[in-house]
């Protein structure tokens, strides 16, 4: 058992802490596990409450716009696809990632804005937080998701600004990517469970 024959001190310093994946991405992945469990808890609560209801949606309450929200869902998924495209461009040549990243931001913003419009429409139709179990769960579950979407969108805008100024590190893009994929990936499940 001889001590290692390092080529030079510098090599050692470089090899010293080579992370499996960058700290930010790792931390975000663990955070996403927690978040996924949060939504799993909400989904299971919703399923149990819904199964014990005699009629669904509850009397006097509007049906959720399942079909109309399909467009939003498609926009969000397209935004995630644009982000995948942005990563590919980024790895080849940073500057070419500007366009796909901008598309991802715009599609994400479209999702958030049209979800907001949908909320206003539902409020007008008499679906509020306290009007029924449907309203309570709708605003809590979709509200949680909207909160995540807004924060993730802010993160995407921040990465776009950094990219524009040439400061964006690969790990920063990776961190924003993980969070945005989570927001986009959990949405179709919520849509299928809650809206139908």
């Amino acid at each position: 058992m001889n001590p290692p024959a390092y080529g030079s001190v510098r090599v050692v310093a470089e090899q010293r802490r080579e992370p499996l994946i960058p700290n930010g991405v790792m931390g975000m992945l663990i955070f996403v596990v927690t978040e996924a469990m949060l939504f799993a808890g909400l989904i299971s609560a919703f399923t149990i409450t819904r199964s014990s209801a005699v009629v669904w949606p509850p009397p006097g309450q509007p049906r959720l716009p399942f079909e109309a929200t399909a467009l939003n869902t498609a926009a969000l998924l397209a935004s995630a696809a644009a982000l995948i495209w942005a990563r590919r461009c980024f790895d080849r040549n940073r500057r070419t990632a500007r366009l796909p990243l901008a598309i991802a931001v715009l599609l994400g913003a479209f999702f958030v804005v049209s979800q907001g419009a949908e909320w206003l429409a539902m409020l007008r139709q008499g679906l509020t937080l306290t009007s029924s179990q449907l309203g309570s769960f709708f605003y809590v579950i979709v509200g949680f998701h909207a909160l995540h979407a807004v924060v993730a969108l802010a993160a995407l805008v921040y990465t776009w600004v950094r990219l524009q100024r040439g400061w964006l590190a690969s790990s920063q893009l990776g961190t924003a990517q993980v969070f945005w994929y989570f927001v986009a990936g959990i949405w179709p499940i919520l849509w299928l469970v809650v809206y139908r």
Binding site: A36, A40, R50
Partner: peptide, 21 residues
């Protein structure tokens, strides 16, 4: 129906963390 829903919820909550980790 509730019983089945609770069973499903239990299965989801018990197995999802294992799958994620």
């Amino acid at each position: 129906a509730v019983s089945l829903a609770i069973l499903k919820g239990t299965a989801l909550l018990s197995l999802l963390p294992l799958a994620l980790i």
